[in-house]
Simulated scan of single mutants.
Amino acid sequence: MTKILVVEDDSLLGEMLTLYLSEEQFDVRRVETAKDGYDALRRFDPDAIVLDLMLPDAEGAEVCRFFREKSPVPIIVTSMKTAVADRIRAIMCGADDYLTKPYSVQELKVRIMAMLRRIAAYSPPVPSAAPARCRIGLDLERRTIVLDGRQIETTFSEYELMKLFTKHPGRVFSREELLNAIRGADSFVNERAMDVHIANLRRKIEPDAKQPQHIKTVWGVGYKFIN
């Protein structure tokens, strides 16, 4: 059963989410504080996290950053804040999606399912015909990048980007295409967020992130991947 960790201090909303998601056949663990969320991340080992940014004992963006550092599972941030700057900050701290309160619990479920489907989607391995040329690959079971045989941990969004890039080497993707591919066309789209994901990927896989050899910028269009 898919496990969902809900970090929400609003008792009424938290109980409603727990009841609804449980009825939809999810295994739900709800906590009300960041401290309990940290403990649940370790003990409960969730498949996805629904995180309220307004918590009584910690600043929400920092909680999101902590979760992202400790786990690659998808994070959906929920908040009453509607400013673009707040959305961008949440994404930069590791969130994979952002829902503004009040929101539909049905929409939350759909977004969770969409992210889980992308995790489970088949990604073909790098062809074995030319292993010497394949410096960058993917470990499908661990959901990591393999760089010269070395495992590189990624966030949910970074892994989905690399899965798309390695599946279509040389193809030029616009920022909008990349965002739609990793979050779905109905999710919040901001091109600045994509630039952040690309910068983080370059720091992880490029010998010199300032002069990238693999993830190339196509000015005025977007990005392409060269292995």
Rank of each mutant, 00 (worst) to 15 (best):
Q25N: 12
P102N: 06
M92G: 11
V6Y: 04
G137L: 04
S128Y: 05
M54G: 00
I136P: 02
V196S: 13
D96S: 10
Q25V: 04
I112A: 06
I4R: 02
V172N: 08
E160H: 15
V172T: 15
A34C: 08
A34Q: 02
G170Y: 12
F67P: 00
P207T: 04
P131Q: 10
G222S: 04
R171E: 09
P74Y: 11
E23G: 13
S123V: 11
K35G: 02
D27R: 11
D57R: 10
E59C: 11
M80W: 06
P102R: 09
Y159V: 03
A61W: 14
D47I: 11
L116W: 05
R133P: 00
D208S: 11
N180A: 14
Y223C: 01
L12A: 01
D139H: 11
L140S: 12
V50H: 09
E8P: 00
F66T: 10
V196G: 04
T82R: 15
N180Q: 14
E59Y: 15
Q151D: 15
I215G: 02
I112Y: 07
V7L: 04
A61C: 13
K167A: 15
V146R: 09
I88Q: 12
S123W: 01
D139V: 12
R42H: 12
V63H: 04
I198F: 01
E158G: 07
I145F: 02
E206G: 03
R65A: 13
A90H: 05
C93G: 03
P125A: 06
T78Q: 07
G149D: 01
F156S: 09
I4K: 06
H168V: 03
G149S: 00
A129L: 13
S104N: 06
A48Q: 04
I205C: 04
Q213S: 12
A120Y: 12
P212Y: 12
K35Y: 08
P125K: 07
F26A: 07
L12W: 00
L201E: 02
V77T: 11
A132F: 10
A121N: 10
A193G: 01
L51P: 00
P46H: 15
P169S: 11
V28M: 06
I88T: 07
K210Q: 09
R111M: 07
D52M: 03
I182R: 08
E32G: 01
D86H: 12
L138Q: 05
P125E: 01
D96K: 07
R133A: 10
R150G: 02
R143Y: 06
A120H: 14
P212F: 12
L99E: 07
N227W: 08
R203F: 03
A130T: 10
V196F: 15
K224D: 03
I198V: 13
L17Y: 01
V218D: 08
I152F: 07
R111A: 06
T2L: 11
P127T: 03
L12D: 00
T154R: 14
S128T: 08
F44H: 08
L99Q: 08
E158L: 10
R133Y: 09
I198Q: 01
R192K: 14
D45I: 13
P131F: 10
P212V: 04
T100D: 12
E8W: 04
V73L: 11
K109C: 10
